[in-house]
Design a protein around this nucleic acid. Structure first.
Lengths: 158, 158
DNA sequence: ATAATTGCAAAGTCTTTGCAGTTTG
DNA sequence: CAAACTGCAAAGACTTTGCAATTAT
């Protein structure tokens, strides 16, 4: 894998804020004994640069392959697992079919349209009252970030 | 498939309330142009009789095979799809791994423990306020029944 | 009779795993 | 250098599909 091509790719696709974020994630990874490889930079970069930040493993593979044609699905799963363990990526299962991954830096909830499959974001506090009620009434500790909200988006309701 | 053995099995496993419920489901199925087969009775009966009413397809296969050893996984998927279309069964994806199915007669919400995998029931109204807020603020029509709530049960929080 | 359902086998989708070679710290 | 990571191939888990034989209405 050519170093220059990777470096170029990361340069090209990364705006300043995202670059700072990428640096923070890599630091966390290194601190945990992980290695910072060109491939991992590309994976994180794909997630930082994606339009909606909610990508399937296949989406990531496709994005990374634009720069690194030999990039393999098994690597994406291993990398995303690692990043999920570190807490910098969240994995959610929005239904049958592939899981979606997103960076966890900006807290938000997920609205999943079961009509068209779209995933939108909701304010981070929508489930706060529910969490409180469940905790007191049933002892269940709700994890709002792991709870995608299912329903129909405005377009699919009509 | 022996008629007598099936009839016996249904008799044996079905209490009066469940029997009434089974009858209602079968009537709905017939009304929709479906056929009432011994196999389908056993599938519904397995769901009526299960301890927590939250079964994976494999659970149903296992239960039905006690009475009908030739029962096939493909049949369970086709049957559960049909019943889900009819609205008498709900399918929820609680994470990676198999979907769980349950009869939809008694409305309730699901608490999924991401620690031990247990699925508990919650009061049907826990998400009502969230639904109202999302509808007015974002136009998103929440479907509470399709929204399993993730977190940790009391035992796994300790 | 005829349309629906079933068993079976095969394939499809998504994900994980084992291993040998390569790269990072 | 040692430990971590990668590509690759193979397998694993869950679900769907095509088809000929059977069954319900």
């Amino acid at each position: 894998m050519s170093r220059n091509r990777i470096a170029d790719a990361v340069e090209r696709a990364t705006d300043p804020a995202a670059a700072a974020h990428l640096a923070a994630i890599l630091e966390r990874l290194r601190h945990d004994g992980g290695r910072v490889t060109a491939t991992r930079r590309l994976v994180i970069d794909a997630m930082l640069g994606s339009h909606d930040h909610h990508l399937t493993a296949a989406d990531v593979v496709e994005a990374v392959r634009r720069d690194e044609p030999d990039f393999h699905p098994s690597t994406v799963y291993r990398t995303l697992d690692r990043l999920t363990e570190l807490g910098v990526v969240d994995r959610i299962q929005i239904g049958p079919g592939p899981a979606v991954y997103h960076l966890s830096h900006r807290p938000h909830r997920h609205l999943v349209c079961d009509g068209c499959g779209a995933v939108r974001e909701a304010p981070p506090d929508v489930l706060d009252a529910v969490a409180t009620r469940l905790a007191t009434e049933t002892g269940f500790a709700l994890n709002p970030g792991a709870t995608p909200l299912h329903g129909l988006c405005e377009a699919c309701t009509i």
